[in-house]
Design a protein around this nucleic acid. Structure first.
Lengths: 174, 174
DNA sequence: GGCTGATAGTTTAAGCTTAAAATAATCGCG
DNA sequence: CGCGATTATTTTAAGCTTAAACTATCAGCC
């Protein structure tokens, strides 16, 4: 028969509880994943059909658009939450396409700065306008209040996840 | 200057509104994506570290676990929301690893049925238990009520997105 | 029986993604 | 100053992912 096991909630709290299936949490996680995948796949296919651009390229350009003075690869990889090595090839392809430009920092020659070219900026502006409409259309079934509530709850979720990950990291590598 | 443009909400409703930046909707979408990526990356790395298994393999096994009699590749691809061609290689690797087995349907030789092997079932059970704990840990900062509310709002979001996609499909290919 | 169209999977080419190892430049500190 | 640690990026190998083209099979219809 199963026994009670310790469940670590964060670095300070250890509660002993009877083993559970965590059914509600799992269902919530699956629903979250479903929603994200649904929206992401739709946006991906529209970007391809309408602008012949991939989602990762759009995302990268969106980051650069928010930071006109350019960003380092390190900043980009942490903002986009993708691995560092991933960006090397992605940036390379966008440079080849003339949408972005890279230059090595003069003060620290390890650092590579990336920024939109004027043509990349123009292309992104076109895409961003429609992208915004698409997102708004996908979320049109939610009221202002729904959006606000979701925002708040997802913020709570984000904080919870980060704190749990932080705690796990401390236990794994003290 | 910008002009008012029609915004299609669904197949019946067309509202004319001044062009907006849809800022709240975009922020919500980015937050949703952040939350999902956060959890997904954490689970991915734990699965790798603890069980040396990739997330797609875990997901596939989870689907088969829910349906012990096995599934066709078509069912799998629609439940997992991945492309059909994707599964061919994924299934191949799991067959090689002895975790699942495939057999051609006897009544329809186009159809391929896939199911967990006993060893795959055992391996999945071990992983699923810890996976559940990890998810519960990541969501530990949410109350029961938060989870219920999120569930409800995400359900609304899912319905909204599906309906917008449905409507777009009708306009694109009537 | 033999078309015709639809359905289930596979293949292919290109691109994305990660983890881990390697490279290269800078920083801190004695 | 010089050397070990740190930091930023690239490289590599494996695997995931998609879209589109292709193959094989089936179902219906005459």
């Amino acid at each position: 028969m199963e026994q009670h096991r310790p469940v670590f909630i964060d670095s300070e709290t250890v509660v002993s509880e009877r083993p559970r299936d965590h059914k509600d949490e799992l269902r919530l996680w699956l629903r979250l994943l479903t929603c994200t995948t649904l929206v992401e796949d739709d946006i991906r296919s529209r970007l391809r059909a309408r602008f012949d651009v991939t989602l990762p390229r759009f995302d990268l350009m969106a980051q650069l658009h928010k930071t006109p003075q350019g960003m380092t690869l390190g900043q980009l990889s942490s903002r986009m939450m993708v691995s560092n090595g991933n960006l090397t090839a992605l940036v390379e392809r966008l440079v080849d396409a003339g949408q972005i430009e890279r230059r090595v920092s003069e003060t620290d020659r390890r650092v590579v700065l990336v920024a939109l070219t004027p043509s990349g900026e123009a292309a992104f502006s076109d895409m961003a306008r429609e992208h915004g409409d698409w997102i708004a259309g996908l979320l049109a079934g939610l009221s202002k209040g729904d959006i606000e509530q979701l925002m708040h709850l997802l913020d709570k979720l984000k904080i919870s996840a980060r704190s749990a990950m932080q705690a796990a990291r401390h236990r794994t590598a003290p």
